Amino acid sequence: MLGNKVSTAAASTAGIAGPVFDDPVSRRLSAEIERVAGASVHVLVLGETGVGKELVARQIHQLSARRQRPFIAVNCAALSENLFESELFGHEKGAFTGALSATTGWFEAADGGTLFLDEIGELAPAMQAKLLRVIQQREVTRVGARVSRPIDVRLVTATNVDLAKAITAGRFREDLYYRIKVATLKVPPLRDRPGDILALARHFVGLHGPGAAIAFSPEAEAALLDHDWPGNIRELENVVQAALVGHRGGRIEQADLSLGVRDDGGAAPERAAPGGLQQVLDDLLARETADLFNAVQKQLVLRALDHAGGNQVHAAAFLGITRNVLRTLMQRYDLLPGGKRG
């Protein structure tokens, strides 16, 4: 089955039970989520990469009447066209070479609950047509089967793609668009909800820290608030994890934060340049950080997977290694599906 973001466990985007709603902008989003959750309609969640769209989907599920039933998350960008039907709709034994037993698809697995299709804007047109039919008919036919199976699934989809432009360009079906956007939620980028930044940072310290109380210095807090967060919540989590590797003395200082630096004109922060990375590594080596190699290598794998949206082939390409080598590293650091992220 899928080798990417599919689970009924905690959200892989950030690992929190629910979104953090400290900022007034986020509180308004929270009210919208609560309103939408009570109506059993399909929901389209829009937002930049890393803003926490899956967390919003999980919150919708938890606040709905379906909360006792499964929540299944699928990364559409990781679905190949050849395996699309088998993954989503299931297959019967002998349906194709390698089908040694009957397998339940993700629609059936989510029956009675919620199916979250992330990055739906990445689906190929042929896959969109097959998905549309299932939504319309409310039934699935396993590959190799002759009988359809009724399903009762609430669909929550998400994308960072402008679907209106994709429709105009012929890349996305208009009829599917109107099927999935009965209700729409827009998740603001982290830079537009600064009141969440420190609350999220403290949460990630608790999530990934050693257990002992670790605080941010005033200078570190100011740096977090000043950063523009182009990678949103996902970037913030990674920054905190990296800071936990290098900090000393029970407090995270500004120097522990691997952030881009603003220029004198106050422009948006730049991505860390190789020289900046060298400085970070020099600092870590100077501190004689325990097990530094494995800690840095694990973070590098995590960052590549995040940037690739969980797609192992793309993540391996980012790192300049083969997928087999990447999977070996993922196994070493317990990052394979079903394992822990971080």
Rank of each mutant, 00 (worst) to 15 (best):
Q136L: 11
T322S: 15
E87S: 06
A73N: 13
Q299E: 12
A145K: 06
E48N: 14
A199D: 09
V205T: 09
R146S: 08
E87T: 10
V239N: 05
F71V: 03
V20Y: 00
G231I: 06
V239G: 13
L300Y: 01
K340R: 15
A166H: 01
F293Q: 12
L257Q: 05
R323W: 01
L44K: 04
T159K: 03
S7N: 14
P188Y: 10
G265M: 03
Q241E: 13
V187D: 09
A286E: 10
T157V: 11
G94R: 15
R341C: 02
P230I: 08
Q62Y: 00
E122S: 13
H208N: 12
T97G: 08
E48Y: 01
V140P: 01
R262V: 01
V240L: 05
A286W: 07
R191N: 05
G266Q: 04
V239S: 14
R271E: 10
A242Y: 04
A65Y: 05
T184D: 01
R303N: 13
D175A: 10
Y333A: 06
L207H: 11
E32A: 15
A220V: 09
F84D: 03
A201K: 07
A199M: 08
A243P: 10
R251G: 00
K5Y: 08
N160S: 15
L236V: 05
S258D: 14
N294F: 09
G276S: 13
L115M: 02
A77L: 13
N324Q: 13
F116R: 10
R58S: 02
A286H: 11
D283S: 12
V51H: 03
A286I: 08
L329Q: 07
